[in-house]
Design a protein around this nucleic acid. Structure first.
Length: 646
DNA sequence: TCACGGAATATTTTT
DNA sequence: TATTCCGTGA
């Protein structure tokens, strides 16, 4: 091969198999790596990063785009271990964080405030909610879509590159009558975001795309800076992301993407697994490398996962094989009810612990975050420490958002959403007063004088807020001092509004710890929106949180790319997984199937599926008692059946 | 204009 | 089941 032992410190030939080695050393031109589950995708990317650096490529000229920030950090950390700390200087992150950094740099070129704020999903919904109210009477009908649905429609349109009209016709035909009003609402949503210098998640991509396509000289400047681009999880990119990559490689066509069409699970967010198939068309001359040896799972698990994925209608056959034999056949357990299901999982976990398997080598996976509620209760009762990933996030919980809103109005006085949020917390202030006060703030261009001059009769809570804002405005302080000052102000409100305030107060403590790491307010707020800690909010309330060895509970989406000794997939019940809502939509059924495949391929040694019987589904009136259709009818020697009745 | 209570409604996954 | 939205009374 092209590697030369005298020149290179890392011995790539011995560390990698042939396909991996080719993916690592084939550095010029477009390269598509089809990487089956567990085939050493991360390893390949890591070695490739190290290889490029070792070859003499400047780390700053390498761009590694991943699905989460954690993924890129982990890869760069490993590359650093392999080679040296030059690898830490490689630019890595998510599409969104890359867009954020690039846009701040070139903001002025496209008429954007470089200090733009970022709206997370909840902020966007709130803004849409405000506009929805303002647009009465058309939006007053009972059947008019809720803010959440509206946010969905708008976002889907952007990510799929379609007009809202098309999205409504395809996915929401029952709202067709409101098309015009929805469009108006969409326009004012966009206008309001521009007016207040905000970008939402989708805007980050849209504006980056606009920057690159409308300004060839900027495109080429950026494109020549990044000589080598690597993209992980390519099957979960959407159309606009693919186009961004195309523009980014205008000067250098050294682009490598890695993905597995069988693991595409983000179509709901506009991801299109055909991106993978279309890649060679977009980049003529693409070389294709397939990684087919699975290093993760024993043969018995792989045999089953091959059966699962073979049920996909549209698939691009790969030949996954493993050299790991032995072990036990995966098991499907029919539990009497949800409680039996939880008990079964707990009994098995205790068994495994007795055999010396560490808790953090065991994961319980599920389709939707709430599926683990009962299990969480039982785990707490048993004193088994766990960490829950995915689902409702820490930063999305109301009390965290409340505190952040106070910081956001300091960073940007024109932040209407945050002002409304803060003001509505105060007793006797409703939407009307909030609006009035906000207008006064805009006029004065200052939170403090704006609050003072608003013609509102004296309200005790408002006086406290005025004092807070003036303190924050006039005393220079660090981010965490600022946070503590705000929390002092906020605690009485917290106690009034939530009966579980002690737990929430502990969350706020945790938040100030995060603040300690930051020097810039803008950076802190950006990170909270763009790269928040992925731990689930309920989890931060659990006392075992400091325990290092914890059972992992995770949504399947959050389990992407991870692996464990033993994996339990709970609620593998037809009607829950796949959900009853998807039963008549073929494309979604296909995605659910891939999701089941992703879940099953996380297991190295042991794999269990459980489903409770006789579950009543309220929305359809059906009794659910069949195993998931993706697992039903598989022979016993591939998937063993057990019963758990007690 | 706000707070509160009752009724309707939509149910996942995440940057 | 929880949230969200609207109408009512203060």
């Amino acid at each position: 091969m092209q590697t030369d032992n005298k020149k290179f410190r890392i011995r790539y030939e011995t560390a990698l198999n042939d396909a991996q080695l080719e993916a690592v050393t084939q550095t010029t031109g477009p390269l598509l790596v089809i990487a089956g589950a567990g085939s050493g995708k991360t390893r390949t990317l890591t070695y490739r990063a190290a290889y490029l650096v070792e070859k003499g490529v400047s780390p700053a000229a390498i761009l590694l785009l991943t699905f989460t920030r954690k993924a890129s950090q982990e890869m760069l950390r490993r590359a650093t271990q392999l080679l040296d700390d030059r690898c830490e200087k490689i630019s890595g992150g998510t599409f969104h964080s890359f867009a954020n950094a690039t846009l701040r740099k070139y903001a002025s070129h496209i008429g954007l405030d470089p200090a733009f704020g970022i709206l997370d999903r909840i902020d966007s919904e709130n803004l849409i909610g405000i506009l929805r109210k303002e647009m009465q009477p058309e939006t007053k009908h009972r059947s008019f879509p809720r803010k959440r649905t509206l946010a969905d429609i708008f976002s889907r349109a952007v990510n799929k590159g379609l007009a809202t009209e098309e999205i409504i016709n395809i996915d929401y035909p029952h709202f067709a009558a409101y098309l015009e009003v929805i469009n108006q609402l969409h326009h004012s949503f966009e206008a309001r975001k521009r007016e207040h210098h905000f970008l939402d998640y989708d805007d980050l991509l849209v504006f980056l795309h606009r920057l690159l396509s409308a300004y060839p000289e900027i495109r080429d400047r950026i494109s020549s800076r990044y000589q080598y681009i690597m993209v992980d999880e390519y099957q979960d990119t959407n159309k606009i992301q693919a186009e961004i990559l195309y523009l980014l490689t205008n000067v250098n066509k050294n682009i490598m993407v890695v993905g597995d069409d069988a693991q595409s699970i983000y179509a709901f967010r506009g991801a299109n697994f055909r991106n993978i198939i279309d890649f060679p068309k977009m980049f003529p001359g693409t070389r294709i490398v397939a990684l087919e040896e699975n290093y993760r799972s024993i043969q018995a698990i792989l045999t089953l996962t091959n059966v699962i994925i073979s049920r996909a209608k549209e698939k691009y056959t790969k030949n996954l094989f493993t050299r790991k034999s032995g072990g036990t056949t995966p098991v499907m357990v029919n539990a009497e009810d949800e409680y039996s299901q939880s008990r079964f999982v707990i009994d098995q976990i205790k068994n495994l612990q007795r055999k010396g398997v560490a808790l953090n080598e065991i994961a319980v996976l599920f389709r939707a975050s709430f599926h683990s509620f009962d299990l969480e209760i039982e785990l707490s009762r048993e004193g088994i420490a766990f960490l829950k990933m995915g689902g409702f996030k820490f930063v999305e919980s109301a009390h965290i958002k409340d505190v952040l809103a106070h910081m956001r109005v300091i960073a940007n006085v024109y932040d209407r959403i945050s002002w409304y949020r803060i003001l509505l917390l105060i007793e006797k202030i409703g939407p009307k007063s909030a609006q009035k006060i906000f207008e006064s703030i805009i006029k004065e261009k200052s939170g403090y004088t704006g609050l003072l001059s608003a013609k509102i009769e004296r309200i005790k809570g408002l006086d406290r807020l005025i004092k807070l804002i003036s303190t924050l405005d006039t005393h220079p302080m660090t981010i965490s001092e600022m946070g503590k000052t705000i929390i002092d102000y906020y605690l009485p409100i917290l106690k009034e509004s939530y009966d579980d305030h002690p737990r929430r107060a502990r969350d706020l403590e945790h938040l100030t710890e995060i603040m300690d790491r930051y020097k810039s307010l803008g950076q802190f707020l950006t990170d909270m929106a763009l790269e928040p800690p992925n731990i689930s909010f309920e989890n931060s309330l659990y006392d075992g949180a400091s325990e290092p060895d914890r059972l992992i509970l995770s949504t399947i989406h959050s389990a992407k790319g991870l692996e464990w000794h033993t994996v339990f997939v709970i609620w593998a019940l037809d009607g829950r997984f796949p959900s009853v809502h998807t039963l008549h939509k073929e494309e979604e059924l296909e995605e659910e199937l891939r999701l089941m495949y992703v879940a099953a391929t996380r297991a190295k040694e042991k794999l269990f599926f459980t489903y409770p019987g006789d579950v009543y589904d309220r929305s359809t009136g059906l009794i659910l008692n069949r195993p998931s259709r993706y697992l039903d009818g598989i022979a016993d020697d591939i998937l063993e059946k057990q019963f758990e009745y007690r």
